[in-house]
Design a protein around this nucleic acid. Structure first.
Lengths: 216, 216
DNA sequence: ACTAGATATATGTCAAGTGCATATAAATAT
DNA sequence: ATATTTATATGCACTTGACATATATCTAGT
């Protein structure tokens, strides 16, 4: 910031936070959408979001919006990217800070139940989205795929105890490809993100797998 | 954005773009700083930046500020991260979108000459910075180091024709470590980012190296 | 009980990538 | 010419991951 603040030349802008809340449901990477009840784009699906309060940090605003949609246990939240095209909202100039969130699908159940203005849309069948939300959603998917290999993001999509098979299913859903089982297994164990519990899953029709958990 | 816009509950905020303009000078990774001429933090060093105009996208604002400081030939500009702590500016609420820029040091010479409110500060000897600019600068350095291996960012710090030795010097300056020469050479050629010109550098006291250029 | 079937887990081998040491090539200075 | 210095090339060990295959462990069915 070099020049002094001149409100006439540089009027303040509306600032929002939009949330790309992703989860894996039925083997497909999906994103939470909310039907718009107001113009513009009334009736279209859009990312959940909200304006940033004056006394609130960006992270706090993102947490607030996330907490409204999901029980935030074992999830992941990080800033994604900021979008500020002058025409992205026809009403007025809005700059949005997009956030990237991951939660196990069970954490979304309470919010989804009985709210028909909310839905989980799979990435391979997204509806027509409002504003520039298609670009935001694509940005999030790309980031997720890119981080999969060097950050324990996939763990945020699983419940606290999980099998290696379940972890692999999550990776395959995100990448859209099949992975080699022994190689995946060794890679995950080498990363040092997870630890075995010694306990096996129960109820399966075949040999039960060991349950793992995220390392603290 | 879910709720309707209520200016009383969510007044607009000032939005700025701050630029972390980095280069390698004398074998050291450095950042362009500007001395503040106004309160707050008057006299302190800070990142160059400015308010975002109403009709201007974030990228356009970043380009405008960059063009003011450097001849933008062969450089790199990308959005870094947004900072919006409510108290980051004591005057008022300011959200800043930080950008990450790389240019060869020669592109900065015109701006630096005769402007004693501008300086290139090496990362290993940064002065006391205004606002939350220390955090922004650290974020940029981390991103730069992280991208070095999988994106051709180092090329943006060199003139169009360069030797592999010069490219290695840039990498070493950024990472702060010495690298193995044959391994570095092979790695760079495998990446497919550069191509030989068949022409050799001239004037050196010893065997002249081949000049390379970035692939289109 | 035993066997078949299915899945979890372990191992062996190969190719690619990287660090390190060393060898060869090409220029200048004396 | 020869020494010196740097560029470029090559050989070798080590690590990592893909893939194939082997072994272990459970249930279901006879």
């Amino acid at each position: 910031m070099s020049e002094p603040y001149d409100p006439a030349a540089f009027p303040p802008l509306a600032v929002t936070v939009d949330l790309v809340l992703m989860t894996v449901q039925g083997g497909r990477l999906s994103v939470l959408l909310q039907r718009r009840s107001e113009e513009p784009h009334k009736g279209k699906w859009a990312l959940p979001g909200g304006f940033v309060g004056v006394t609130e940090s960006l992270d706090e605003a993102a947490h607030r919006i996330l907490a409204d949609k999901a029980r935030m246990t074992g999830g992941w939240l990080e800033q994604l990217y900021s979008f500020g095209d002058p025409n992205r909202d026809p009403r007025m100039r809005v700059v949005t800070i997009a956030y990237f969130a991951l939660v196990p699908v069970e954490s979304l159940a309470p919010a989804l139940a009985g709210h028909d203005d909310l839905m989980l849309a799979p990435f391979d069948a997204l509806p027509d989205l409002a504003f520039d939300h298609p670009a935001i959603v694509n940005h999030a998917a790309t980031r997720l795929r890119g981080k999969l290999d060097y950050a324990p993001v996939a763990l945020a999509l699983l419940s606290p105890l999980f099998t290696l098979r379940a972890l692999q299913d999550v990776h395959e859903a995100i990448l859209g490809t099949k992975l080699n089982k022994p190689a995946f297994r060794r890679r995950m164990l080498d990363r040092g993100w997870i630890e075995g519990t010694g306990v096996r899953e129960e109820g399966g029709a075949f040999r039960p797998a060991e349950l793992f958990r995220a390392k603290p």
